[in-house]
Design a protein around this nucleic acid. Structure first.
Lengths: 336, 336
DNA sequence: CTGTTAGCGCCTTCAT
DNA sequence: ATGAAGGCGCTAACAG
């Protein structure tokens, strides 16, 4: 591999001139510049990013850690981050944490060691908040994406989960539903906790007793599956709300297992939703995150932070849209 | 940030000893080692990956480029690669090319510049093969994943696309189908080209004239959409086969647009398929790639290559499984 | 068993 | 307008 020294020798100049030609960092006579450029061509020289990063403060790269870039919601966020990164000539280094605190920590270390200029992080469910808080001491700033932690002093961008859930519940209550099953999942995940709070807001709005509602919470899929099946099976609820895509899969399977048709016998809605909502049967009412925009916003927050390191942290909430489809619409519910 | 010099000073030893303690690369007296470890603790020292990589030949990291880590098939390959990488203490740097040759080239340059020890690549559709061939001159070896190019002298791992399609067609022919629409898509993608070849194999097996079959080929979704709708609309085909997930979406939408029910009026099958096949209506017959294993295999090929740089390139084909579901079973009606 | 030292490839003052 | 030279943090001979 050719180095700058080779180029300098071939061009008959000093390495310093080569460097300046490369970076346009000071004037160099057109003739000399041409010689240098030719020498670069001849030698097949390519800049060594590593050596360069070692001398400069920055690497022009950022890191992104999500739990699973294959989940539709995260996939879109990744695209948003990629787009914004490309627009700003930043290289993106991507890693999955698989909701595992340990893998997440490894990824953080890896990326920080690779000297990313900043890190965008959607914390895993099992993440220890204080460990993340320690990231405040790193040289690279951190932006929290999707999974917000009020207590952490970082820039953050997420969706208005609580308000969206509240609106969704209001809608269902208006349709006459009074018994709900909410598949909340792992409420250590702030996104899911917020959605659950919104559910209770909605209940209050509708003057419904929260005591008679069923909330499936936790990490054990089979337990939640059983809860959904049992509750719906004995007719104790007329509407099921899933708080994420995997939870929706779980819930729909549970409904199938007790032969309850949607929306004929039970109304169903989910957050985040599936990749091809119009091909599902039934077409599922979905609260959709502005995931792409969240990704782009995260990068912008990062850039803003880099250019103003001392400004106080900002939290941005983007609006979710409720896409009403057959699963909550195509039947008329009669009060018991 | 503390450096090795700081640690050495605090521990009262030389940097070389610190280095050897860190890397376990030569014996050091237990007492000294303890002092060094303590000093590391005290100073909060962390190794600088970049400086380290500059001295060593390797970075213990590999790169992976796919067109879209959000596509179900690629998402699984990514997981496989992650798993294998983690097992071998390799850091994974992931990038999406979005089927764009230019973005792909940028990603390659970025990763090579970051001195990955190896690169796993699922070429984009628009990739210029000769440009990829030039990667043979890089210091880091390349493994082709999923999208194989016979002419390139790299290790490769993919699925037995041709054989699977052939078997699928045989199955449909046995059921009595004689008129097919194949949504082949962009056959510059080798995976898709192979599947199309398999289709013709199947036709020959069934002694069917290929002249009366419809192959939708190309990059323009609206053109293919129209072809599917038109062909099926006039009853010129009884079975539709999509060669990838996005093409399946397209085809199913086209069928909806002409009000043809699956499988009542038309049989349907796809490759790769959807994330939650049992929640779709109808449940779709799917040829599924062993995507996870393909990812793991890619890493293994890379490691094998690194330890035996001169061995001749290997191509591995893994078997796909055909998951038969309602969409090709003419007598089953599951529409709610 | 431990220390000294010479770079890895590049950027960047400081001179000229 | 250009060169010379030091050093970023680390590893690996080479010496003791």
């Amino acid at each position: 591999m050719a180095t700058m020294v080779d180029v300098a020798r071939v061009a008959g100049v000093s390495t310093s001139t080569v460097s300046h030609v490369l970076n346009g960092t000071r004037n160099v006579e057109p003739a000399t510049r041409r010689r240098v450029l030719a020498a670069i061509e001849d030698t097949g020289y390519r800049q060594d990013t590593l050596a360069r990063a070692m001398r400069r403060a920055r690497t022009d790269s950022i890191g992104l850690i999500v739990s699973d870039a294959g989940e539709p919601a995260f996939a879109e966020m990744v695209h948003g981050v990629e787009q914004a990164a490309a627009e700003n000539d930043l290289t993106l280094l991507l890693a999955n944490s698989a909701e595992d605190a340990q893998r997440e920590q490894r990824a953080i270390t890896t990326l920080m060691n690779r000297r990313v200029d900043g890190l965008i992080l959607a914390c895993s469910a099992s993440t220890d908040i204080s460990a993340i808080g320690a990231l405040g001491d790193e040289r690279a700033p951190v932006v929290l994406l999707d999974r917000l932690h009020r207590t952490l002093p970082f820039d953050q961008v997420g969706a208005d989960n609580r308000e969206s859930m509240r609106a969704l519940v209001n809608h269902l209550v208006e349709q006459g539903h009074t018994g709900f099953v909410v598949v909340a999942g792992d409420t250590r995940v702030p996104t899911l906790a917020e959605r659950l709070e919104g559910f209770h807001d909605g209940l209050r709005d509708g003057h419904l007793h929260s005591g008679s509602q069923v909330v499936c919470e936790g990490v054990d899929a089979s337990v939640m599956f059983a809860q959904v099946a049992e509750t719906v099976g004995r007719g104790a609820a007329s509407a099921v709300i899933a708080c994420s895509t995997p939870l929706a899969t779980l819930a729909l399977n549970a409904l199938q297992s007790v032969n309850r048709s949607v929306p004929g016998e039970v109304a169903f809605a989910t957050f985040d939703g599936f990749r091809n909502p119009d091909l599902f049967s039934p077409r599922v009412t979905t609260v959709r995150q502005p995931a792409y925009d969240m990704g782009m916003t995260a990068v912008q927050l990062l850039l803003a932070r880099l250019s103003a390191p001392e400004s106080s942290p900002r939290t941005v909430r983007l609006h979710q849209s409720i896409e009403l489809r057959d699963s909550t619409e195509a039947f008329t519910f009669t009060k018991p």
